[in-house]
Amino acid sequence: MVKRLVVGAHYGFRDWLAQRVTAVVMAVYTVYMLVRIALLPAHDNEAWRTLMAGGFTKFVTFLFALALFYHAWVGIRDIWMDYVQQISLRLTLHVLTLLALVGYAGWVAQILWRL
């Protein structure tokens, strides 16, 4: 049996929820990193490298980055949907936004795992 909802904007719920879950992930990470940075023995490049080279820091930083890019995708797509009415231009902007965000994710992974 095909379970398909044909009425209402139910498909928006997943993005609404994702926007909030990713926001909480980023908020927790932000506070965690502020505490870690405040507790560093020295505030120089050496200490910064040592902090970011830690396995757990890399892991949570990458999670933060993915949460950020998903969050940005939902938010920026909302902006395009609100202000860009011409459908072909809107589609182009959606695709460019997605491509940029996927590229950023690769870029952040490369920065983190060459450390």
């Binding site: 940005a72 920026i76 870029w107």
Partner: peptide, 19 residues
């Protein structure tokens, strides 16, 4: 949010260069 999105390349570049 829009401003942060537009400045993402700069922020990631600075993050990468600092490391």
């Amino acid at each position: 949010g829009a401003g942060l999105f537009l400045c993402m390349p700069l922020l990631i570049w600075l993050f990468g260069a600092s490391l």
